[in-house]
Structure formats: C-alpha cells, structure tokens
C-alpha cells in the first residue's frame, strides 16, 4: 500500500510563486503523469516529492505519514540526465544501493552475499535489456541504455514510489516505445506508485492511469510571478478503454516508422532503395 496525499502545497523561490495550493490524492499503484508547459513547476513538484526541495507551505503524506525531510530509499528517482554514476560500470551501478545498506562503512559486500547480489543485479539488467552491457561504463552506453540502467538501479531498491522526470525526453521514437513497454511492465510487476513528468501528451495517455495538467490558473501580464501553478485538470483514465500495450508487436524500429511516415506523406523518392537507408539501431 502506497498512498500519496498532497495538501495545499505551495512553493516560492523568493518573490516568485511557483506552485500554489496544489492538492491531490494518489491511491496505491497509480501511474500518475504530470503534464504542463515549460516552467510550470513540474520538476519542482517532483523535487518536493523527493525531498530535494521543501515546500514553502502545505504538506505531503505517504501512507499517512509526513514525508521524510531527506531523500530516502522509499522513493526512487530517474532524472532526465545525471541519473547514473559515471565512475561505476552498469553492474556496479545496480549493485550500489543494496551494498550501501548491507555494509555501512565500506559499501562493499564480499563472498557469497556479493555473488548473490551480483546475480540479482545481472538478472535485473537482463530484464531491462542490458544483459550484454554489464561491464560497460555509462559513457559507453547510449542515452536510452543509460536511462534503462538508471531504472534498474532504482528498482533493485524496491521503492514504494518511483519518480520520473522526463526520463525518455532525449530518446528516438522507437527506443521510446520500447521504454514505454518496459516501464509499464515493471510498474505492473512491482507494486509501486509512479509519478512521471513529461511533455509528451501522447506518452501521457499511453502510460498513465491518472493525468495531472499543471499550469497557471490565472495570469497577470504585469506581474507574471504573482500567480503560481496549480492542477488545472485532473483526469482518471478508464483502464477498460485504454488501448492495450502492443506487447507482442515486433519492435518497430526507426526504419519502419520512417517508411510509414514516408508512405503517408506521399514523398517522392530521390535516391535509395525500397527500404530507406535510415539508421538501423537496436532499441536503446
């Protein structure tokens, strides 16, 4: 059971009012997507849930208890960038969290417990499609692979709440689709509540069970900072009417998407074969 209750949350930075009187109840196992224009305060909202920032007023309760004032393992996070440790290999990144808890001084397990953890981490990396990249450093991974690594690193801690800030913002469409399948699958298997920020409305409706639209409720052109953002729309999606995730569908790679769009646009072929020479890339 993980229920998040936000009550009358307000956040100011100096004179600037960012969030104003935000209240929302997220029941257990919600997949909540936060939409809104740039600068609306979506990241700020997520940072407050993470305890990276403190609210100016109002409160956040998780399962009835006030939020711990520091970031804790009950809330995992994947940022848009800088989510994995550049000095650790993929495997070390995933093994990091559990070792911290087990070995307070050295942060390092040995012997049988290390081997067991290693197996668990490798299996998790396999789940996110990184089974072949266990010993690679983040610099050797593509953007999509780094985000999948960040997800695995977070999930091994089995957080009650998973916070995602535009985690797929920098990915190409086919990788993005693969990530959607992955995250919905992981969300279904792990009983956690997800709060995800995105700019992509399509993505919001594919993934979410709940969508919050964050924007300014009023505007004063002479004092743009005087009004903060609130939840202007809060919708619950009917799971029955949701298009099923194309679970079995073959990975649609970039070349296929390109071909589909080309056909629709009625484009004239200037050069190239039937199959356009689009870069063919394994998802990720």
């Amino acid at each position: 059971m993980t229920e998040i209750v936000v009550r009358n949350l307000t956040k100011r930075y100096g004179d600037a009012l960012i969030l104003e009187n935000v209240s929302v109840d997220l029941p257990d196992h919600e997949f909540c997507v936060v939409l809104g224009p740039s600068g609306a305060g979506k990241t700020t909202f997520l940072r407050i849930l993470l305890s990276q920032e403190r609210p100016t007023s109002g409160e956040v309760l998780i399962d009835g208890a006030p939020l711990d004032p520091e970031p804790q393992p009950d809330r995992g996070v994947v940022f848009q960038r800088y989510s994995v440790f550049p000095h650790m290999t993929a495997l070390q990144n995933v093994m990091f969290g559990p070792q911290l808890r087990a070995a307070p001084v050295t942060g390092r397990l040995w012997g049988a417990r290390r081997r067991a953890l290693r197996e668990r981490a490798a299996a998790l990396l396999g789940d996110v499609g990184l089974g072949h990249a266990l010993d690679k450093y983040p610099a050797q991974l593509s953007g999509g692979m780094q985000q999948r690594l960040a997800i695995a690193q977070t999930l091994i801690m089995e957080p009650k709440v998973l916070l995602l800030d535009e985690p797929f913002g920098a990915l190409d469409p086919s990788t993005r689709k693969a990530m959607h399948r992955l995250i919905v699958d992981l969300w279904a298997r792990n009983r956690m509540t997800v709060v995800m920020v995105t700019h992509d409305i399509e993505e919001a409706f594919i993934l979410g069970t709940r969508i919050l639209m964050v924007d300014k409720r009023r505007r004063d052109p002479h004092a743009p900072q005087a009004w903060g953002s609130g939840i202007v729309e809060d919708i619950r999606l009917d799971p029955a009417k949701k298009p099923p995730m194309p679970e079995e569908e073959r990975e649609e790679d970039m070349a296929a998407i390109f071909a589909r769009h080309r056909a629709r646009a009625g484009a004239a072929l200037v050069a190239g074969a039937e199959a356009p020479p689009a870069p063919r890339r394994a998802a990720g």
């Binding site: 520091e70 995992g76 800088y82 989510s83 994995v84 440790f85 000095h87 969290g97 911290l100």
Partner: peptide, 27 residues
C-alpha cells in the same frame, strides 16, 4: 558534481560517509 547524483545516492540509502567515499571521492 551534479546535484542529481548526490540526491540519487541518497535515494539509494547512502550515508554522508558513503557518499563521500564512494561517490564524491572517486569522481
């Protein structure tokens, strides 16, 4: 060092000592 990494370490349960020795120093 990006603030995100320090926050991330805390969400993985790192203490100040662990962050200093295992995240900050190596970097």
């Amino acid at each position: 060092i990006p603030r995100e990494l320090i926050v991330k370490a805390q969400t993985l349960g790192a203490s100040t000592w662990q962050m200093m020795t295992l995240v900050v120093f190596p970097q």
